[in-house]
Design a protein around this nucleic acid. Structure first.
Lengths: 159, 159
DNA sequence: TTCCTGTTTAGGAATGACTCCTATCTACCA
DNA sequence: TGGTAGATAGGAGTCATTCCTAAACAGGAA
């Protein structure tokens, strides 16, 4: 799906983002694929046209686009591995504020199936439903409409 | 849910894992909580009883437990951020082999709702269904029953 | 019980995704 | 056209995680 230069310009303006060639290139690369690329993949692609570009710019720009709501971060749980010893089928409620994950058992959700088309193309071995929102504690302090960046990572303390 | 020492021993043996105090402590800590802790959180907790323990051991042990199927990694998409410019409601098919993410539109899945109990406790603003499996390309090379560790991360090349 | 061997552990170093800081640059409003 | 807030490039720092190695140890064999 080709994107007109003007279209990008309009979308950026609508969000109050300045229109720069790097930024437009990153957004264009993302909008013209369905492959959910990583920051690095986008960097590799855009760098072909802008060899001076810093990976920093890619991170900064993706953050800006995300905060503006122009792109989604598909896997916002990319911060640190989390484990679960509960092996029975269950789903999750995820708090976007404090990042708590709460178990949710529901037989109805267990029975979901992908459409037949995908079941043929893909060898599906399971599924999981994730509800996103704010827990009671975070609801009170929930920011209006602003999206919040992930919590800063904490270092693994040794001492 | 308290876990008897013998119970842990049996589960480990059944998977061919040696039973060590550190390993048992890590598994116990994980089995006795529903909070989906990070490796660091487990380290902090278990370290209270085993001050000499290295964070390394926690990573190694969690990997072993996961490969043995005794625990699940809740958010295996914790490796690197991935982005999506498709803002329309959709769900995902995730290939456990090559980690590709394929879009999946299905109005039926859009209409899911959490049980009323959770809807009261949690301010839910959205949900997403993730189907896991193997794409056509990976199906061929899919290992029998062995679980595969995540692909090695690739560094962001500058030169 | 003791010994052997392969696994596990601790510690240090390396990796790599990402963030922070700073100086320069530039889009865009007046 | 100039001023300025916001954007970029580059370097340094952060930190979760992995790699490597030597020492410790669990558990089967003798």
């Amino acid at each position: 799906m080709k994107l007109a230069e003007d279209d990008i310009r309009q979308r950026f303006r609508a969000c109050g983002l300045k229109v720069t060639p790097q930024r437009a290139a990153i957004y264009r690369a993302l909008a013209e694929t369905t492959s959910h690329p990583t920051a690095d993949a986008l960097y590799q692609q855009v760098r072909r046209r802008y060899p001076m570009m810093s990976p920093n710019t890619v991170y900064y720009t993706l953050g800006a686009l995300r905060d503006a709501g122009l792109v989604h971060e598909v896997n916002y749980w990319h911060d640190g591995a989390r484990f679960d010893a509960n092996l029975t089928s269950h789903h999750h409620l995820v708090c976007l504020g404090c990042r708590a994950i709460v178990d949710l058992m529901d037989a109805r959700l267990d029975r979901l199936a992908a459409p037949a088309l995908q079941r043929r193309a893909f060898d599906i071995i399971g599924h999981r439903v994730e509800f996103h929102g704010y827990c009671a504690a975070c609801r009170a302090s929930k920011p209006g409409t602003t999206r919040r960046r992930p919590e800063p990572k904490k270092r693994m303390r040794r001492a």
